[in-house]
Amino acid sequence: MSKPQIETIYSQRAAEPVGPYPHAKRVGNLLFLCGMGPRRRGQTTIPGALYNEKGEIIDYDIVEQSKAVFENIRLVLEEAGARWEDIVDVTVFLTNMKRDFAAFNQVYKEYFGKIQPTRTTVEVGALPTPIAVELKVIAVVE
């Protein structure tokens, strides 16, 4: 049995990774996306974040952040030759489950309701940047 080819994918449209890793790896017909947050390419501000005069985040909109995350995922999928409908598994990281789960779920249902990938949702104490949501996705590519 031969080892499947591994392809590294760097998107030119999605937000840049915040560390030394690619946007995705393709192994055979599986596509593994890195954890994707809501930032936009070339920007340092976070969609849905409310900043004070010192530039510190004082509040955020989980709906806006979630939609921005989903857009980043879509961009990486497209550049890797996959579609939204090819997503088979989603891991969701929320920094405040009690506050954000219901609103996140509503947005998630709008985007994923018809394709229904498997999903795990966990609350984390923090993410690498001051964001409230991050998703890790696995998709199938033809």
Rank of each mutant, 00 (worst) to 15 (best):
S2V: 02
K3E: 07
K3P: 00
I9E: 01
Y10M: 11
S11Q: 04
P17E: 05
V18D: 14
P20Y: 10
P22A: 04
H23P: 03
R26P: 06
R26N: 05
R26W: 05
L33M: 09
R39I: 12
G42N: 05
G48T: 10
G48P: 08
N52L: 06
N52C: 03
E53Y: 09
K54G: 05
G55T: 06
E56T: 10
E56Q: 13
I57L: 11
Y60M: 07
Y60N: 06
E64P: 00
E64C: 09
S66A: 15
V69E: 04
F70M: 13
N72G: 06
N72D: 00
I73L: 09
R74C: 03
V76C: 05
V76H: 01
A82N: 01
R83D: 11
W84H: 12
V88W: 02
V92Y: 01
L94T: 08
T95H: 03
M97K: 13
R99L: 06
R99F: 00
F101H: 09
F101W: 08
A103V: 08
F104E: 02
F104G: 02
N105T: 13
F112W: 02
G113Q: 02
K114C: 00
I115G: 00
Q116P: 01
P117T: 04
T118C: 00
T121S: 12
V122H: 14
V124T: 15
G125A: 14
A126N: 13
L127P: 11
P128E: 13
I131V: 15
I131Q: 13
V133N: 05
K136F: 12
E142I: 12
